[in-house]
Computed example of a mutant assay.
Amino acid sequence: MAHYFESLVEQKIREALERGEFDKLPGSGKPLPGYGGEYDEDWYVKELVDREKLAGAILPATLILRKDLEDLPETLARARTEPEVRRIVAELNERIADNHRGLLPGPPTLIKRLDVETIVHEWSRR
């Protein structure tokens, strides 16, 4: 008859289980995120970038500019005043001008300057 030796760690885990300390933990009974999908060796990095909102620290400035232009409708939807809309568009136009002058690092992008008056008019209609 073999005797089982319970280590201190195993003992602490068993006692915590008996007290119910592992019951109703967040995520209990739910599948692990990404389980069952295709394996991505960069999963941790991508999750970290999303969780910590690090895209601005990793993406080149020209790609961030393109992303900000893509997100412009949502950004303007949160704007409360016309001066705020004008400021947002002016800042984007300044970055677009920097891009035209070749001052932004990253792959080249062809982006036209934004028409402030048209954007303000569209924003005010909403």
Rank of each mutant, 00 (worst) to 15 (best):
R95H: 07
R126C: 04
I58A: 09
T109E: 01
L54C: 05
I64C: 06
D23A: 03
L92E: 12
P107A: 07
A57G: 01
P31M: 01
K112A: 09
A79G: 09
L17M: 09
E52A: 13
E117A: 15
V45Y: 09
G106P: 01
T62I: 03
L72N: 02
N93C: 12
E91N: 03
V120M: 01
E52M: 10
S124K: 12
P73V: 07
L8S: 11
V9K: 11
L59P: 02
G27V: 08
W123S: 10
K30E: 02
P73K: 09
V9N: 08
L63E: 06
T118N: 10
L54K: 06
D68R: 04
P60I: 10
L104V: 11
G20F: 06
P26F: 04
A57L: 11
R87N: 10
I13M: 07
W43K: 05
R113N: 15
E47C: 07
D40F: 00
I119K: 10
L54N: 03
R78W: 11
E74M: 13
E41P: 10
K67V: 13
R80A: 13
V85M: 00
D50F: 05
R51A: 15
K112L: 04
D71E: 14
H3F: 14
Y44H: 02
E117S: 13
E84P: 01
D50L: 15
Y39G: 04
F5Q: 12
E70P: 05
M1R: 15
R126W: 13
L63G: 03
G56H: 07
G27N: 06
T62R: 08
A79T: 09
Y4G: 06
K112V: 13
P107V: 04
V49F: 04
I58P: 01
E122I: 01
I13F: 09
K24F: 14
D42H: 02
M1I: 03
K24E: 05
L69P: 08
N99T: 15
E52N: 14
D115A: 02
Y4R: 13
E74Q: 15
K24W: 13
V116S: 05
M1N: 11
G106F: 03
